[in-house]
């Protein structure tokens, strides 16, 4: 049904979106905070990554984008832990502010192109001349980065600090009574989460080579959809399983979008398709419960009738 190129693009984007989904996994699933600064942070990652690449430092682009994301996460965390701003509002405030910051980073222009610059990906492309490598290098590089990050997150959440962060989202009373400062764990969690979002923004810039200021719009919805598809399919098992679920969820989401593209859904409707997927994904566990209850009722009534 899908051509090889379409599948390849879907997987590439899936790998990138996995990073954002992983970021939301940390803020939304683990810390129980809806971090709405994701959209702006994603664009920030692109803006910083592209600017650093254009300045002639293709390798520095990734850590720079991650650091920028972490700073944004720090501000969001600072607003909610120290200044008592409601967590959703803190995200919205930072998101609004980031719009101007992003324009500033991009040199007050609303789009930026890195077509002519040497990027991490063009350097990687030059590593080998085989046709296989030329066809697949983007996906391989992206998957490698994703793998490193997923392993890091899996490892991290088994350390003392990681366990503390997980407990903060699970039972904040317990955390306070366990000599852990919740303000600190929330800050660290949001910094890591937004660093991943920034990295994803940087990578999408490298792949698409040119992006504009609205790159991140709707990102939060897409990542949430991926996250929830993953959690619906893989349940709430161990951290490793859940992180794997997040990655698979992102790829499934991109495949659904690729099919929508194939079915010639007009591009103007894509946001609606995305919103529908999210709604269905979030509603599906509840829907399954409703069906189970109805079936139980039906069987009970049937049993009562037979007795009569």
């Amino acid at each position: 049904m899908l051509s090889m190129t379409a599948l390849q693009t879907a997987l590439e984007m899936g790998a990138i979106y996995s990073l954002v989904a992983l970021a939301l996994f940390i803020s939304f699933s683990i810390l129980n905070i809806a971090d709405l600064s994701t959209d702006g942070c994603y664009t920030l990652g692109f803006a910083v990554g592209a600017t650093v690449t254009l300045a002639g430092h293709p390798f520095l682009a990734l850590p720079a984008a991650m650091a920028a994301g972490a700073c944004s996460g720090f501000v969001t965390a600072f607003l909610q832990t120290k200044l008592g701003v409601e967590s959703i509002l803190a995200g919205i405030i930072v998101n609004t502010g980031l719009y101007t910051v992003n324009l500033a980073v991009m040199g007050w222009s609303s789009n930026l192109s890195i077509v002519k610059a040497d990027t991490l990906l063009t350097i990687a492309k030059g590593l080998s001349d085989s046709t296989f490598w030329k066809d697949w290098y983007t996906l391989i590089v992206l998957s490698a980065i994703l793998l490193v990050m997923a392993l890091f997150v899996t490892f991290f959440f088994r350390t003392r600090l990681g366990l503390s962060i997980r407990a903060t989202g699970d039972n904040v009373d317990m955390v306070r009574a366990s000599s852990i400062n919740p303000a600190f764990t929330i800050t660290v969690g949001l910094c890591i989460s937004n660093a991943l979002t920034g990295l994803a923004g940087c990578l999408v810039g490298l792949v698409q080579k040119s992006c504009d200021i609205n790159l991140g719009t709707g990102m939060v919805t897409i990542a949430l959809a991926s996250l929830i598809i993953g959690e619906t399919l893989f349940g709430r098992g161990s951290i490793g399983v859940r992180i794997f679920g997040v990655v698979v969820g992102s790829c499934i989401y991109r495949l659904i979008m690729a099919v929508a593209l194939k079915l010639e859904v007009p591009t103007e409707c894509f946001k609606l398709v995305a919103a529908l997927i999210v709604a269905v994904a979030i509603a599906s566990p509840q829907g399954r419960k409703l069906i189970a209850i109805q079936r139980q009722k039906f069987l009970a009534r049937k049993g009562a009738k037979e007795k009569c």
Partner: peptide
């Protein structure tokens, strides 16, 4: 006093 979604071992580790 305990985090419900974390395992017994993880709670004790904490």
């Amino acid at each position: 006093g305990t985090a419900p979604h974390m395992t017994i071992e993880e709670n004790m580790s904490l």
